[in-house]
Nucleic acid binder design. Sequence first.
DNA 1: ACTTGGCACTCGTCCGACGGGAGTGCCAGC
DNA 2: GCTGGCACTCCCGTCGGACGAGTGCCAAGT
Lengths: 340, 340
Amino acid sequence: MVEDRRLSVLRAIVEDYVATHEPVGSRSLVERHSLGVSPATIRNDMAALEEEGLIAQPHTSAGRVPTDQGYRVFVDRLSQVKPLSGAEKRAISSFLDGAVDLDDVMQRSVRLLAQLTRQVAVIQYPSLTRSTVRHIELVLLGANRVLLVLIADTGRVEQRVVDTGAPMTEDLLGRLRSRILDRALGQPLVDVAERVSDVAEGFEPDERPAVRAVLASLIETVVERHEERVMLAGTANLAAFGDDFNGRVRPVLEALEEQMVLLRLLGESRSTDTLTVRIGHENEVEGLTSTSVVTVGYGRGDEVVAQLGVVGPTRMDYPGTMGSVRAVARYVGRILTEQG
Amino acid sequence: MVEDRRLSVLRAIVEDYVATHEPVGSRSLVERHSLGVSPATIRNDMAALEEEGLIAQPHTSAGRVPTDQGYRVFVDRLSQVKPLSGAEKRAISSFLDGAVDLDDVMQRSVRLLAQLTRQVAVIQYPSLTRSTVRHIELVLLGANRVLLVLIADTGRVEQRVVDTGAPMTEDLLGRLRSRILDRALGQPLVDVAERVSDVAEGFEPDERPAVRAVLASLIETVVERHEERVMLAGTANLAAFGDDFNGRVRPVLEALEEQMVLLRLLGESRSTDTLTVRIGHENEVEGLTSTSVVTVGYGRGDEVVAQLGVVGPTRMDYPGTMGSVRAVARYVGRILTEQG
DNA sequence: ACTTGGCACTCGTCCGACGGGAGTGCCAGC
DNA sequence: GCTGGCACTCCCGTCGGACGAGTGCCAAGT
């Protein structure tokens, strides 16, 4: 009973603080919410909440501000994901339809998400590891140079230039291509390395060096070089809530420029529809300890192929943000399914 | 004679202001530079320079600050490009060597440039229009779906998914591919549209709809959709000189997120080694009127295939920035030449 | 025709003091 | 367990004065 009201007070504090960006006091709280009790009572509750570490005051005798833990409780127990309005849904589908290729889908999605949430949006390209080989193409660029193009069934295309070290001919390349395709076509990328490992043995000894160089590059592409790409949008929105971050915008921008950081940030939901929220110091990434990150996996059906999400100030509209992230993830998943 | 000293004063003002970010007064000027005259004389010169619109004072009785026009004169007549130090040159080549594909070259270059100049760096992918077709690949993705991959001799790869509208088979696709390659291989991209325009006529009437869809997409790829890509790095550096911009960092970040804006920004040098400097209001792009942009073309030999450059505050170190931009452009050009 | 030192004047900036206001904690009473 | 009252704390905006950097102008010197 009393416990319930305390949580209501916490909810009210979070909501007001998110709306106004100013420490909220007991008086304004009772005015804006019909809590049915007096400011003095609220003060007692606040003292208790502060004791529990859920709120804090920036200065003696200023209003209260939620702590990271306070937001945590709010997200876990006091809020629910806010579904998008009809207009927003329509905006999403009209914006995402008409994407011509994977790059385009990624770009449109991430921009859209940034716009919907007015925060920084991040999207990860569909992982190679879960997909299968749709095609592998080898193109002779020069005597010692081959372009390797790998096309996955998710529509993703990987390319790299291979320096063969030894002479390569159109004829040899053609035979190599069909051998590789024999072994790899339709196979999951994770299995490709193993399946092509002995291909070199089918060639003449003097052909093997060049063949091996190509195979090594292929294996590197599918295995070692996970190099999951990420795309970013909405960094301009950082400027708007610049003051919120203790250490200014700089470290945040720096962190966001590092692909590795972004990848760690996106985490690893293993099922779609499970939103992950990391608040403030829960992000172990340096520079982002005063931001919150909301991510979710997306994919075909319930197979997760990658993640997307947003980065914003800890004082963000969690229900709304979570709604937008989830909605965009669903649409992207649907589009991938249709196109695949 | 007197005219000469005035220009020296302007140069000194620019240099000091760039170094300190503070309005520079007559007294400190004679202290830091050996001009051989008294502050009073400098004041007279300053009055004249202000008359000409080359410098201005933020407030009555504060020091002077260069105007956009002042910087213009400085760049055109008072400075020369500063060559990089040996250490910097070594850093460039060690950083750019080992790039595995075009994406990698672009990414490394733009990051390097951002780091060298401590500003925002922009690089444009090599234009398709000036290059020739190295290979065109068609892959059947589904009954009505074909993946079109176009590989240019600059190493650039364009891909798109084509919805054929009518059924497509492996056999038909194979015939189409060899027809297209017959016509287009080795040809300049600009000529491809014309050369493949009548390919459909060689097919059976019932095959033509699907064939036409693929051809249309190909033509779109090489002609209509110039979609020159750009890559950005160093936006974190914006935070450092945040105060410099009248309207804060926000509009700058917004402008930089727009690909179209960036493309316009990069302009069109038609020869390598000709640096373009646009200062403050000379940039007609909204949001960037208080920044300066230094760009240059890069390419193989003296054939320009794209542009790169940096965006920074008008009070930037022009000689140094120009040196870095030119150096990186040369290295990128060299790498493209070697790889091509 | 330039240069120079002197001088009065203008402003922006940096305190320190002051008052208002918002908010708190505590207590006594219901 | 709630409430009203009250004293207290502390942030913040305002004001005024001292300070200093820098200017413009003028009269004199070279």
